[in-house]
Design a protein around this nucleic acid. Structure first.
Lengths: 204, 204
DNA sequence: CATAAAAACAGAATTGACTCAATTTTAGAA
DNA sequence: TTCTAAAATTGAGTCAATTCTGTTTTTATG
C-alpha cells in the first residue's frame, strides 16, 4: 500500500509550498524567513530541508507551477495560430507575458532568475533551464506550424529562428522584471518592434 | 588639499579589489570569505563594508573593469568593420566572447549575473545594466556604420536590430556560463547560425 | 599648534540559512 | 499483536555575511 506515508508527504509538500507562496508574496523572498515558513507550514526547519535542498528550490517549485501553466496556455495558440506571422508571434508572446505576473511578483521572478544562473546544477536550476527549453520549443513549434500553413518560408532555419525569438523575448522580460516601474504594454510593444524585422524576413 | 585621505582611500580600494580578485580566482566567489579578503587587503571587515555595500559589489567592480576592456576592444571593429555583414557581426561578437573569460571565471560570471538581476538597484546592479546598454549601443553603432558603407539596407530599424542581436547573444552567453563544459567555438557557431537569419534579411 | 567636527576604521554582536545527531514514526515481517 | 529496520522529523548548533557602536585618524579652523 502506498498509504499513509505517501499521503503525509504530499500533504507536507503542499503545506510548505502554500506557506512559502503566502510569505513570499507578503514579505518578499528575502523577507520570508525559513523559520516563518516552517512555523506556518507546521513543520520543523529540518523537514523543509528534507523536502527542498535550499530556500531557492522552494521558490523554484512555485515558479515551475506558473511556467507550466503558461506552456499549457501556449498550446492553444500553436494549434490554431492567427493567420498572420506577426500576430501569431505576438499572441503567443502575449500569453507568456500576461500570465507571468499572475502568481509571481517581479521580485520573485528576479530571485528565481538569479538562483537559476547562480546554481545551474541545483534541482531548480536544472528545472528552470528545462522550462526555458520548453518555451523555446513551443515557439519553434509555432514557426513549424506557420511553415505548414504556408505563412513562413520553407527555407527558414526554424530552430535558429525559435531560439532567436525566445532569447530576445526572455532578455526583454529579464530587463522588465528588473525595473519595478516597467509596464507590460511597453514591453510588448518593444518586442513587437524587434520581431518586425524578423517577420519581414521570414514571411512568404 | 585633498591629499592624504583621498590617496589612502584609492589605495585601500585597490588593495581590496586585488585581494578579492585573487581570492575569487583561487577559491571561487562563495569560497572567498569576506574575512579572508579583509585580512589579505590589510583592512578590517567594517572597512570593506564602508567601501562596498556588499560582497556582490566587490565582484561587480571587477566585472566592470573587464567589460570596459571589452567595450574598448570593440571600438576598433566599429571603426573599421570587415566588408561583409556576417563577418562584421561575428568579429564584434567574437571579441566580446573571447575577452570575457580573460579575468573572470564562469563561476564569477554566474555570480555577477545573478547579483545584477537579484539587486538591480544596488550600485553594481545599476552599473551592470549600464554596461549591457553600452554593449547594445556598440552593436547599434556597428549597424549604423554598415548602413553608411552601404552593406545594410537603409530602411532597417537599427535600434531594434541592435537590441535583437545583443539580447540573443547575451542570452546565449548566459546559457554558456551556466554550463562549465560548454565551449567557446560552439557558442560562436550557434550565434552565427542565429544571426544568419538576420544577415540574410538586412543585407542590401 | 590646539581642537572640534567629520570621516573612516575596527571588530564584536547579530542574523538567518543550512547541517547533523538524536529522536520519533511508519511499514511490514514474524 | 509485537518488534525492528528504514524513513522522516526535530531543533539546537554552525557558519559567514552584514550591522552596529565605540574609537581613531584626518581635516579645517581659530
Amino acid at each position: 500500500m502506498s498509504g499513509l506515508r505517501a499521503r503525509q508527504k504530499a500533504d507536507r509538500h503542499r503545506r510548505i509550498i502554500e506557506a512559502a507562496a503566502a510569505l513570499f508574496r507578503e514579505a518578499g523572498y528575502e523577507g520570508a524567513k525559513i523559520e516563518a515558513i516552517a512555523a506556518q507550514a507546521e513543520v520543523s526547519i529540518g523537514t523543509i530541508y528534507n523536502y527542498y535542498e535550499n530556500k531557492g528550490d522552494i521558490l523554484g517549485a512555485i515558479v515551475s507551477l506558473e511556467v507550466n501553466e503558461v506552456l499549457n496556455a501556449g498550446r492553444g495558440v500553436v494549434a490554431r495560430p492567427p493567420a498572420n506571422v506577426g500576430d501569431a508571434l505576438d499572441t503567443l508572446i502575449g500569453i507568456y507575458i500576461e500570465h507571468s505576473l499572475h502568481y509571481l511578483s517581479k521580485e520573485m521572478w528576479r530571485q528565481a532568475m538569479a538562483i537559476s544562473t547562480q546554481l545551474p546544477d541545483s534541482p531548480f536550476g536544472q528545472a528552470y533551464t528545462g522550462l526555458d527549453r520548453s518555451l523555446t520549443e513551443q515557439i519553434r513549434a509555432l514557426i513549424a506550424r506557420l511553415q505548414e500553413i504556408g505563412l513562413v518560408r520553407q527555407d527558414i532555419d526554424g530552430a535558429a529562428l525559435g531560439e532567436l525569438i525566445f532569447n530576445n523575448m526572455n532578455m526583454m522580460f529579464i530587463e522588465f522584471v528588473k525595473r519595478d516601474e516597467a509596464r507590460i504594454p511597453e514591453l510588448r510593444a518593444a518586442i513587437r518592434r524587434q520581431n518586425r524585422i524578423l517577420v519581414a524576413a521570414i514571411g512568404v
